[in-house]
């Protein structure tokens, strides 16, 4: 097991190198003169500003050296400096990342609370009204774009329930209840979409397990349906669901961007959107790298979790 984890950690290195290289290459895709795009014509014509910006972006060196230099800085935790915000890129990210993280975690919690119980019920009551209702819900949940559902909540929330505030953000340490109240709506929106997907996985996985011999044996022994499903079937049925959960957790890293925009939540998503508007390239570059690291780590942790839960996984 330990060897498996160490091996996976080593495999992380090429992924991180690749991600950094891609992000590094992105800046070079910008058509035209980057200094003019960032600073405007007047500042770009000032040789001092020009030199400073080129140096900060590492564009004043040969290409390969630039990459190694930039990578070295990243390894030391130096994600660059934002001229527009007059602060380090990392501090800007770290200020907003916990907000997106809270939204993501809250969404996943709601998704699991919706998706797993409904999926089990839908499988057990297969072909009944409840099954059709759950599947219809899942179809709409998967098809409705989250930014559309979010917009509807904002519009009709304001019309029908003027007392409820759906927009904005309050830090948790200032007013925990208000924070949760406002985070609830975007989290519910994301939770419905991902819950609909988890419902599908749970349903088909439970259906598959219910057809297996050991479940039939448990039934034949005269165990109650409750214990057959919850003690015997669910243990195996949930393994693919755990994989699905981890994939969608990785999606939520950065995937909250649209709802941050709809509900005006100051997370990393909005940071990158405003950085795009300001052409604040160090911020864009740094955020993509930071979040890619988080995605790669999430995948690693989930693979290890699945290996721990499922004894059939070989540690290769």
């Amino acid at each position: 097991m330990l060897r498996y984890i160490i091996r996976r950690l080593f495999l992380l290195i090429p992924v991180l190198l690749g991600v950094t290289f891609l992000t590094f290459a992105l800046v070079r895709l910008i058509p035209g003169d980057i200094v003019t795009r960032m600073m405007g014509v007047t500042d770009a014509n000032n040789p001092q500003t020009r030199a400073l910006v080129l140096h900060e972006l590492g564009l004043d060196r040969p290409l390969l050296e630039q990459y190694v230099w930039w990578l070295g800085r990243l390894l030391r935790g130096d994600f660059g400096y934002s001229f527009l915000r007059h602060s380090s890129v990392l501090s800007e990210i770290l200020r907003r990342f916990p907000i997106s993280l809270e939204l993501g975690a809250f969404s996943m919690l709601i998704a699991m609370l919706i998706g797993i119980p409904l999926g089990v019920l839908s499988a057990v009551k297969r072909g009944r009204v409840l099954d059709y209702a759950a599947r219809l819900f899942s179809l709409f949940g998967i098809s409705a774009p989250n930014f559309f559902v979010g917009t509807l909540i904002v519009v009709f929330g304001a019309i029908w329930f003027p007392g409820i505030t759906t927009l904005g953000y309050v830090p948790f340490h200032q007013a925990p209840l208000q924070n949760l109240e406002r985070m609830f709506w975007p989290a519910l929106t994301l939770g419905i979409g991902i819950g609909a997907i988890l419902l599908r996985y749970t349903r088909s996985s439970v259906l598959e397990v219910l057809g297996e011999d050991y479940v039939r044996t448990a039934e034949a022994k005269g165990l109650s349906p409750f214990s057959v499903i919850f003690v015997h079937a669910l243990k195996n049925a949930l393994i693919p669901v755990i994989t699905a959960i981890s994939v969608w957790t990785a999606f939520l890293i950065g995937g909250t961007v649209l709802l941050e925009q709809v509900f005006t939540i100051p997370g990393v998503g909005r940071l990158i959107l405003s950085a795009i508007q300001d052409r604040d390239y160090p911020i864009i570059q740094g955020t993509v790298v930071f979040l890619s690291f988080c995605v790669a780590l999430t995948m690693l942790v989930s693979d290890i979790l699945v290996a721990l839960v499922d004894p059939r996984v070989k540690f290769t």
């Binding site: 090429p14 690749g18 895709l29 990158i272 979040l291």
Partner: peptide
Amino acid sequence: LRVFDILFALPAILFAIALVAYLG
């Protein structure tokens, strides 16, 4: 597979946003 791992590690929506922002 290693190259795909890299592309899968990118946060898809944010990467698309960044790429479109860079390219115009």
